[in-house]
Design a binder for these strands. Sequence first.
DNA 1: TGGAAGCTTCTTGCAAAGAAGATGCTTCAT
DNA 2: ATGAAGCATCTTCTTTGCAAGAAGCTTCCA
Lengths: 164, 164
Amino acid sequence: MGTEDITAVDPGTASQEAEDDEIVTWWGLVIEGYHVTQERLMSEINERFDLTPGAFDILVRLVRSPEWRMPMTKLAREAALSSGGFTKVADRLVAADLIRREPCDTDRRVTYVTLTDHGRVTAETAKSACAEILRRTVLGPLGPEASEQLAMAMRTLRTANADE
Amino acid sequence: MGTEDITAVDPGTASQEAEDDEIVTWWGLVIEGYHVTQERLMSEINERFDLTPGAFDILVRLVRSPEWRMPMTKLAREAALSSGGFTKVADRLVAADLIRREPCDTDRRVTYVTLTDHGRVTAETAKSACAEILRRTVLGPLGPEASEQLAMAMRTLRTANADE
DNA sequence: TGGAAGCTTCTTGCAAAGAAGATGCTTCAT
DNA sequence: ATGAAGCATCTTCTTTGCAAGAAGCTTCCA
């Protein structure tokens, strides 16, 4: 093979390049494992409940909130969506009768997003299904101690790279 | 708080619900850690090289291929893109003078995608930068043994949930 | 008290990115 | 030769971010 004739490098640079490649490949493995798992999870949720990943995320956050409601901005920030983007997501969820908008009594700029009865039942059922799928596709294959280590590693990465 | 007056459940169901919630929250932590890290990585790559995540992924795959080229379909499949979506990505990369299309001599159905000189230099430089960022944002905070465990866990998830 | 400047909060319009399906060309097998 | 399959492209639809704008709240100064 004639590739090294073209990109002639000294041994030190070559080994550095190989090490770089190894690290990038290593992270690629993390990406792939994450995506494969998440895609399987979300496709099952979508099949059973007709929920997109974003919609499921919103519903789970709401069902854990007091009175099943939250201001739009707070919810958008938690879901890592722009406020403009979240307006459209909320429109779709309203159209699906999963949430409704409610004005805030004390601050008329604020719009609360509240789960409808249908939305609450859907959210709770989907959350249980999600837990069942995770037991089957993640906790089962990994085992308890590897799961614990995974959680700790991810917590470390989150705090190390958080924006705010 | 009066929520349990409304959603009255027996203790068994309640503890099951709490356990479901814990698992979903646990996976949410994994999601968040992954996204925070990946977003930081990709924003630095984008800043320095003006590459989108998809473009960077394509370039890294090509720079590791013999003769820096691959059939479009194979590359699209590896990058988890639809063939239609990949055509558009390829158009952008051609416009940026990072790749070019080349016909295949032996099978005239196939179109090869090949790195240009500029694309090859960009890919190698960006790959080194990516490795440097990963050392700083992932391997550093985690340490060697946690990194090893993370890789093993992700490999397990990938093989457990792979589609094909 | 009054009111003007400066922030939030939500919505709308425009553009980019990607997925899915239809189309048409090339190749392979019988 | 002719039907079946593989492959790249095109079109359309959905989703999302960003920028701009309208409405409402807060602060501060006269």
